[in-house]
C-alpha cells in the first residue's frame, strides 16, 4: 500500500477530528436538535467555506486565465499529460503576479484551478516547473483541498458549539459572554492543530505522488530549493515583476507589506519571520522544506 505510515497517521488524526465532531453532534442531539439538521448545517457550513475560500484565493491575487499560446503552451501540454496520467480532468490554469515564486491549487477534483505565479515560471526550468505542477495535480487527485475545508469546517462547528454551550449555561452577563468567546476560540485553536497536522501529511503525500508520476524527485527538489531562495529574497522577484511589466496592482514594494496585492501574496510565503520553533512547527501548514527535499531525493 502506498504511503502506509502517512495514511496511518492521517487515519489517527482524522479519527480524532471526527470524534470532536461526533461529540458536538451528540450534544446537539441530546439538546433536541434533530441529527438531520446537524448534518445539513455542517454540510452547508463546509460548502460556504469551500466557495468563499476558492473565490477569495483567486480574487486576492488577481489571477488571470493562462493563455494557451506563447510561453504557456508547454505548461498546458504538460498539465494535460500529467492529468491524463493521474486520471483526473485537466484543471483550469491561471497565472498571477504573487511577488514570490509559488503555485497553488483550489477547488475540487473535476472543478479544480491551478494558479502559477509569473515569478515561478521565470525562476524554474521546464522540468522543475513540471515537478511543481505534478505536486499541485496530486493535491487535486488526493482531494486535499476538500479535506482541508472539511477539517476547518469541523473546527468552526466545534468552536461555535463550545461557545454556545458556555453562553447557554451562564447568566448572560458580560463575563459569560466574554468567556464564551474565549472558550470558543481556544477550542477551535485546539481542533485546528489537528487540521494543520493533516495538512502537513498531505504535503508529503503530494510530493511522493509528484515524484512517482514524473519518475524522479529531483526536479521538484530543485524547484523547492529555488522557491526557498526566492522567498528569502522576495523583493528581487518583485522587482523582476516590475521590470517585466507586471500588473499595476503588483507594483507596490513588498518591504512594508502594508497594502495592495503584495499583502495578500504574503499569505503564500513559506517563511514567516518567526523562527522554526516547536510552536511554529505545530502551526505550519507545510513540513520543513529541508525534510521534503531529503525525502524527494531518497
Amino acid at each position: 500500500m502506498e504511503h502506509l505510515g502517512l495514511k496511518f497517521r492521517m487515519a489517527v488524526v482524522g479519527a480524532i477530528l471526527f470524534a470532536f465532531y461526533a461529540v458536538v453532534a451528540a450534544i446537539a442531539y441530546a439538546m433536541g436538535v434533530p441529527l438531520v439538521l446537524v448534518l445539513l448545517g455542517s454540510v452547508a457550513l463546509v460548502g460556504v467555506q469551500y466557495k468563499i475560500g476558492k473565490w477569495s484565493a483567486l480574487r486576492s491575487i488577481g489571477a488571470e486565465e493562462m493563455p494557451e499560446d506563447g510561453r504557456w503552451t508547454d505548461v498546458h501540454r504538460r498539465v494535460e499529460a500529467l492529468a491524463d496520467e493521474m486520471g483526473i480532468e485537466k484543471p483550469r490554469l491561471m497565472v498571477a503576479d504573487m511577488g514570490v515564486p509559488n503555485a497553488f491549487a483550489v477547488g475540487r477534483k473535476g472543478a479544480a484551478t491551478v494558479v502559477v505565479s509569473n515569478e515561478l515560471a521565470r525562476t524554474l526550468n521546464d522540468d522543475e516547473l513540471e515537478g511543481v505542477l505534478a505536486h499541485e495535480l496530486a493535491h487535486v487527485k488526493n482531494r486535499d483541498v476538500v479535506t482541508m475545508v472539511i477539517g476547518q469546517g469541523i473546527a468552526s462547528i466545534v468552536g461555535i458549539a463550545a461557545q454556545w454551550l458556555v453562553l447557554l449555561s451562564g447568566d448572560n452577563d458580560i463575563a459569560d459572554f466574554f468567556l464564551s468567546m474565549i472558550v470558543g476560540s481556544v477550542v477551535q485553536f485546539i481542533v485546528m492543530l489537528f487540521v494543520l497536522a493533516i495538512s502537513r501529511y498531505r504535503e508529503y503525500v503530494a510530493d511522493a505522488d509528484a515524484k512517482q508520476y514524473i519518475g524522479s524527485g529531483e526536479p521538484l527538489a530543485r524547484a523547492l530549493e529555488k522557491i526557498q531562495r526566492g522567498n528569502e529574497s522576495p523583493s528581487a522577484s518583485g522587482s523582476a515583476t516590475r521590470q517585466r511589466g507586471g500588473r499595476g496592482r503588483g507594483q507596490r514594494s513588498r518591504g512594508g507589506q502594508s497594502d495592495g496585492v503584495n499583502e495578500q501574496v504574503g499569505a503564500l510565503c513559506i517563511f514567516d519571520d518567526d523562527e522554526r520553533s516547536l510552536v511554529t512547527k505545530l502551526v505550519a501548514t507545510h513540513p520543513p522544506v529541508e525534510k521534503r527535499i531529503a525525502r524527494l531525493r531518497e
Binding site: Q49, Y50, G53, K54, S56, A57, S60, P101, N102, A103, F104, A105, V106, G107, V132, H135, E136, H139, D144, V145, V146, M148, V149, G151, Q152, S199, R202, E203, A206, L220, A223, L224, I227, Q228, N231, G256, Q257, S258, D259, E263, Q264, G266, A267, L268, C269, I270, F271, D272, A284, T285, H286, V289
Partner: peptide, 19 residues
Amino acid sequence: GVPVPDRHGPDGDGGVSTR
C-alpha cells in the same frame, strides 16, 4: 486566519501579512 483553506502551494502558506 487561514483565509484560503485550500491554498496549498509547493512551498506553503506560512506568511501572514503585517495588517
